[in-house]
Design a protein around this nucleic acid. Structure first.
Length: 697
DNA sequence: GAGCACTGC
């Protein structure tokens, strides 16, 4: 351990940033210890770029309340920094070092890697917590990986996160809602717990604005007026990555059709470049299927060695077996082309990619607080995204990235960073989470990026109408606190609470579990007709929610067999997840003192419970409408029933939807028929006093 | 007649 800074010894070399204010460390080039007996794992660890900064990182963390680490992928920061901290004693005395990730898979992968490097059993000194899985051992676990969502939940029991000595927030540049809420809360905690250290790890140079955010005006002064405790001004440290260089190519002229252009580019690479897989970024399933078809046709038409090119689509809606195809290593003499959504930008890593084709677009969510509708639109990506995409070409050897936009466009028109998710989303869940943590002045909360006041007001309005907040915008008791406790969208939580009075909680928690996963149906190539037919076997006249109950019943009766799922075009993995989520909800309900009762065959109460949570999503069929045109009661928006719904073409007069998807039209997904009188029953102030609505009469 | 990506005691 030659590179070990100890408090009280001479501090490591540092350089002043020419712009002042922040610190950059020059890597110290002293050779690593030649002491023999290092395992190969130890040597591997020392070869990581971050190793050179070990001393510097420990020094900064010791002396600064917040350290911001900018590092590209492959620097080793995620696996190494928690170990350095542990080695330096930050986990002594029963304290815990936490490292958060936005995604569960990453949490599991990093935790098991670190356990392996430390030569310990996962769940002992090194552990992880994600939803449904707590692989830690209290009193033993020193380094804990967890999703930022889990850490937020932990704050409900322990608002100051007292057991943690250091909290490292990884992938902060992704700016997920959870990360942003967490950053705001951690800043607050820091004022109460000066001994707590934060490490914010980000892949982009946005560090400066992050640093400004953590700039704490209040210094902790002792009696003599001298500053005690750590320096409150954040330190910034850059760590280089270990990716190979990627040559960037731009188009000379803007392209009019990026699908066609992507296909031509792939063919050009295949003809002219040496072996290596190609990754193409398009926006969604439509684009991708079209490109796959086009490319396959071109290959055949031109009589190329079609055996040499393997074309594979990749998006989240793809069945697992097909998704797994992209991970099979490419055979000798063949070249794999993966045409993907954003899923390959952060969530999945494909080995063997040497060429990237970047359309410059992705589908992004936008929220309109006026209409209260979340839209999915194709929008230009940011420079940060473009760099991330390009980086995917440099994992195995130097690569090339072909951008289907001009260099001028990249330099002058592309925005540096994407818009944080919190500014593009409905804030209902986010507001109730803060309320539950005792943050009453939501508008005055110190956000890394402020959401729009309109979106805030809209969220407060919905929560008020759900009976979750009172006239003073405080959580109601018990409803508000109970809704906050249930780890689901507040409208679903409210539906569950109402089911308790209506005597149908068993049914409603099944529905809640199904609604919180993507889809219980098996999707597949060319099996659309069979799937539709299978659906008819379960279809309920009341709508999709009751249909889900039928599927769940069938699954239980089959003893949860995968064969049964296969035969009925039901997704087996999805159903297992439903069982898991349902089990969690059952436990939560019991803890809240809700009596679990079944209504057997009485679907009327089930529909009423759904109405109690989702009255705001009520719609009425337009009079004399022949094409199934509905209008929302709240905003008079034109909407249609999604073709995947069992009520498609049935078109009951009054319906409630679970969610809207927007393409060229607004489609209601997961729809149930209701009676209009239930609306006023469920939310009198919403449909009567507050908003007199002639449509209800 | 059609689905960006994540996530939660």
């Amino acid at each position: 351990m030659s590179q070990f800074w100890k408090p009280g010894t001479e501090k490591p070399r540092l350089l002043d940033d020419e712009e002042g204010g922040v610190l950059f460390f020059a890597p110290s080039f002293s050779s690593s210890s030649s002491r023999f007996g290092y395992s190969s794992i130890e040597k591997q660890r020392q070869r990581l770029p971050v190793y050179k900064y070990r001393t510097a990182i420990l020094y900064l963390v010791e002396t600064h309340a917040t350290t911001i680490i900018v590092g590209e992928t492959g620097s080793g920061k995620t696996t190494q920094i928690p170990q350095y901290l542990k080695e330096a004693g930050w986990a002594d005395g029963g304290r815990v070092i936490a490292c958060t990730q936005p995604r569960r898979l990453a949490v599991q992968a990093v935790a098991s890697r670190v356990a392996e490097e430390m030569g310990v059993k996962l769940g002992e000194e090194v552990g992880y917590t994600i939803r449904f899985e707590d692989v830690t051992n209290t009193g033993v676990t020193m380094v804990k990986f967890l999703t930022d969502g889990v850490l937020l939940r932990e704050m409900m029991d322990d608002p100051l996160l007292t057991k943690y000595s250091v909290i490292m927030v990884d992938e902060a540049h992704e700016r997920s809602i959870s990360t942003d809420i967490l950053l705001g809360l951690l800043k607050k905690i820091q004022r109460r717990r000066p001994e707590l250290r934060l490490i914010i790890s980000s892949a982009t140079i946005e560090a400066k604005s992050m640093s400004q955010f953590f700039q704490n005006s209040k210094k902790h002064r002792g009696i003599e007026g001298e500053v005690v405790g750590p320096i409150t001004e954040p330190a910034i440290l850059s760590v280089e990555g270990r990716g190979f260089s990627v040559q960037i190519h731009y188009v000379e002229e803007p392209v009019s059709n990026y699908i066609q252009s992507a296909v031509s580019t792939v063919l050009l690479i295949h003809d002219q470049e040496r072996m290596g897989d190609i990754l193409v970024f398009l926006t969604g399933q439509d684009d991708i299927d079209a490109a796959v078809k086009l490319l396959s046709e071109e290959v055949q038409n031109r009589g190329r060695n079609s055996s040499g090119l393997i074309v594979l689509p990749l998006y989240s809606g793809l069945p697992r077996a097909e998704q797994d195809l992209v991970f099979t290593p490419t055979a000798r003499g063949k070249r794999k082309v993966v045409i993907s959504t954003n899923i390959a930008e952060t969530s999945l890593t494909l080995e063997g990619v040497v060429y990237v084709v970047d359309s410059g677009f992705s589908k992004q969510r936008f929220y309109n607080p006026i209409s209260d509708i979340e839209n999915l639109v194709v929008a230009p990506i940011s420079k940060a995204s473009a760099r991330q995409r390009a980086g995917r070409a440099g994992r195995v050897r130097p690569g090339k990235c072909y951008r289907l936009y001009t260099e001028e466009y990249f330099n002058n028109e592309m925005s540096a960073e994407g818009i944080p998710e919190i500014q593009r989303s409905n804030l209902v869940s986010c507001v109730i989470q803060l309320k539950a943590l005792g943050i009453d002045n939501i508008l005055g909360f110190d956000w890394p990026a402020s959401p729009s006041p309109e979106a805030m007001v809209r969220a407060l309005e919905v929560l008020y109408s759900l009976g979750v907040l009172d006239d003073d915008a405080k959580l109601t008791s018990p409803t508000g606190f109970q809704v906050a406790e249930i780890p689901l969208d507040p409208m679903i939580s409210k539906m569950i609470l109402s089911s308790s009075h209506l005597g149908c909680t068993e049914e409603i928690i099944t529905i809640a579990a199904v609604l919180s996963i993507q889809s219980i149906w098996a999707s597949g190539w060319g099996a659309q007709k069979e799937l539709d037919e299978a659906k008819l076997r379960f279809a309920a006249a009341e709508g999709d929610h009751v249909t889900f109950l039928n599927v769940y019943k069938g699954f239980l009766q089959s003893s949860k067999l995968s064969q049964w799922c296969h035969k009925n075009y039901v997704n087996y993995h999805a159903m297992k997840k439903v069982i898991e989520i349902r089990e969690q909800l059952r436990r939560t309900a019991q803890r809240l003192g809700i009596v679990l009762k079944s209504c057997e065959t009485d679907m009327l109460v089930v529909r009423k419970a759904i109405t109690a949570g989702f009255f705001a999503n009520a719609c009425r069929l337009e009079a004399f409408s022949h094409n199934g045109k509905y209008k929302t009661i709240r905003g008079s928006q034109e909407v249609h029933i999604h073709p995947s719904s069992v009520l498609f073409r049935v078109n009951p007069k009054w319906v409630i939807y679970y969610s809207l998807v927007s393409t060229d039209r607004q489609y209601m997904r997961n729809v149930i028929s209701i009676e209009p009188s239930w609306l006023r029953e469920a939310a009198p102030h919403f449909y009567h006093q507050q908003r007199p609505n002639p449509m209800l009469h």
